[in-house]
Amino acid sequence: MQKVISRGKNQKSFKNVSISKILEKESRVYLFIKRIIDIVCSLAGIIILSPVFLIVAIFIKIEDPKGSIIFCQERNGKDLKTFKMYKFRSMVHNAEDLLKDLQEQNEQTGPAFKMANDPRITKVGKFIRRTSLDELPQLFNILKGEMSLVGPRPPIPREVAQYTPYQKQRLLVKPGLTCIWQVSGRNNIGFDEWVEMDLEYIKNRNLLLDIKLILKTVKVLFGDNNAS
């Protein structure tokens, strides 16, 4: 089986591949089992990690009492449908208002915004981002069926508005909590290569690949220098 981390090795081949045609031939058995795994794992995760949810919530509220514990943001899911994605708040309560003043310092290529030393991130936020604990509330999105454990990360609508038709192919499947990009260096990867990784996953996805990505993601909980 091909390596999970390809770093765009097959970029050229994707230019001539119709992702929609690949999905038409996709096994319904795989999709059914994938959904069962999503339900069981997300529910188990919520129950087992409930003490972690509580501890993180307390520290967030202590550092910045004005803001909410959970940050809800509109994201695009499968077929461009929008939904509210949940995260533990890792920034100051007025982070969205401050974004316009930071756009010129964007360090990510393409429409996505990334900044290594974003001044809006709180002390607690830096820790939960480095350990990916900020993503845990998305287990509720998975349980609701808006997301899957594995799939392309859901983008912000204002970013999708700048997508090319080719880039929009990453939105032909349900978005995920983790993906190839998530375990391959994240912020060291440009947007074009990020898209190629997502399309690589869509083209080759199966239960074994999903399990491999989930296991690799677990390692991130011990700290990831590329997370921000």
Rank of each mutant, 00 (worst) to 15 (best):
F191Q: 11
D224M: 11
I33C: 10
A161I: 05
A112T: 09
G110S: 00
K3D: 13
R120Q: 03
G77W: 01
L221Y: 15
V124T: 10
Q103E: 13
E196W: 01
I60M: 04
L98C: 07
F88H: 08
S148F: 04
S6Y: 12
N204G: 04
E96S: 07
D118Y: 06
E135Y: 05
F59G: 01
L139I: 07
D198F: 04
V160I: 03
S184W: 12
Y163T: 01
S20F: 15
G77M: 02
I46C: 12
I202G: 01
I60L: 04
K123T: 06
I58C: 06
V17M: 09
R120M: 03
M85W: 00
F191K: 08
Y86H: 06
A112S: 02
Q11F: 15
R158D: 08
K216V: 09
G67A: 00
R186M: 13
W181H: 11
L221A: 11
D198A: 07
F88G: 07
D192L: 13
V220A: 07
E196Q: 13
L177F: 15
K66H: 05
A112L: 07
N206H: 11
D118Q: 02
S50H: 05
R158P: 12
L23E: 10
G45L: 09
G185T: 11
K219S: 14
F14E: 08
F59K: 04
F59V: 14
I128G: 01
E196D: 14
I214L: 15
I70V: 15
E74G: 04
I39W: 04
L209A: 02
E200D: 14
F127A: 00
L172P: 15
V218Q: 11
N10E: 08
I55K: 00
I58E: 05
A44M: 13
I202H: 00
M91W: 14
G67W: 06
F127I: 09
S68V: 06
N76P: 13
K78H: 02
K212G: 07
N204Y: 05
K144P: 14
I69H: 09
V173H: 05
I48H: 03
F88E: 08
W194M: 15
G45F: 08
E193N: 11
A116E: 06
R205K: 15
T82N: 07
Y201T: 01
L54H: 06
L199W: 10
K114V: 10
N94M: 07
S184A: 05
K34I: 06
I55Q: 00
A116Y: 11
F127Q: 01
N225T: 13
G8F: 13
K126L: 12
S13G: 09
T109F: 09
N10V: 06
L149M: 12
V29H: 00
P155A: 00
S90M: 10
I211Q: 08
I142D: 03
I128A: 01
G151P: 13
I39T: 04
L209W: 05
P119C: 00
F71T: 02
F113G: 06
K174F: 12
Q108Y: 03
Y163G: 01
E135S: 03
A57W: 14
A57M: 09
K144E: 03
L49Q: 02
Q108T: 10
H93F: 14
N187Y: 13
E104I: 12
N76K: 04
R153T: 00
R7E: 05
N106E: 13
L98P: 15
I180F: 07
N188E: 14
S68W: 01
T164F: 11
N16M: 11
M115N: 04
L43W: 08
K25Y: 10
